Simulated scan of single mutants.
Amino acid sequence: MGSIQRIALVMTIFGAVNWGLIAFFQTDLISGIFGGRDETLAKVIDGLIGVAGLVNLGLFLKK
């Protein structure tokens, strides 16, 4: 596993934990850290987590 895939995996785990917090406690950790849902930085982080999920799709499909 390369370094980009490791970083993507960590980001995907962070995103999954964030979604768990949203579902169970109505707390958005990313928005809380980066200043709110409408802040550009929070949107960029969410986008990077989405890209990380796509990178991890390669791990899933890898033989």
Rank of each mutant, 00 (worst) to 15 (best):
A52Q: 01
F25K: 13
T12E: 10
G58Y: 13
A23G: 11
A8E: 05
R37L: 09
L61F: 08
R6E: 14
W19D: 13
I7Y: 11
F14Y: 08
L21Q: 10
G36N: 06
R6K: 15
G35W: 05
N56E: 11
L61P: 00
L59Y: 11
V51S: 07
V17D: 02
N18D: 14
G32C: 04
L61N: 03
T40Q: 15
S3H: 13
R6L: 14
V10L: 14
A16W: 12
I45W: 03
K63R: 08
V51F: 14
T40H: 08
N56V: 05
D38P: 07
D46F: 10
V55D: 00
F34R: 01
M11T: 01
S31Q: 07
L9Y: 12
L21E: 04
L54V: 12
W19R: 13
I49L: 05
D46W: 15
V17A: 12
F34W: 02
V44N: 08
F24Q: 09
R37V: 13
I13L: 14
L48N: 01
V10A: 15
D46Q: 13
E39I: 03
L9G: 09
I45V: 14
I49H: 05
S31Y: 12
W19E: 12
A16S: 07
M11F: 09
G50A: 04
R6Q: 14
Q26G: 09
G15V: 01
L61K: 06
I49Y: 04
F14N: 01
F25S: 12
V17R: 01
G47H: 02
M1D: 07
F60P: 02
V44G: 05
R6C: 09
V55M: 02
K63L: 01
I13Q: 05
A23K: 11
L54E: 02
L9F: 13
V55G: 00
G35I: 00
W19N: 12
G50Q: 00
I22K: 08
I49G: 03
A23C: 10
Q26E: 14
A16L: 14
F60R: 11
Q26T: 10
F60L: 11
G15W: 05
K43W: 11
L9W: 07
G53E: 02
T27L: 14
L57Q: 04
I4G: 12
A52C: 02
N18M: 02
F25P: 01
G53C: 03
I45L: 03
I33Q: 00
R37A: 15
S3Q: 15
L48Y: 05
G15T: 00
F14C: 07
I30P: 02
V44I: 15
T40F: 15
I45G: 04
G2A: 06
F25C: 08
S3F: 15
T40S: 13
L59R: 15
I22R: 09
T40I: 10
I49N: 11
I22P: 06
R6D: 12
S31K: 08
W19T: 15
K63P: 04
K62Q: 09
G35M: 00
F24D: 02
Q26D: 11
F24A: 10
E39Y: 11
A52F: 00
I45D: 01
V55S: 03
L59T: 06
I22E: 03
G15R: 04
L61D: 04
G32Q: 06
I33G: 03
I7A: 08
L59G: 11
N18P: 01
N56T: 07
G47Q: 02
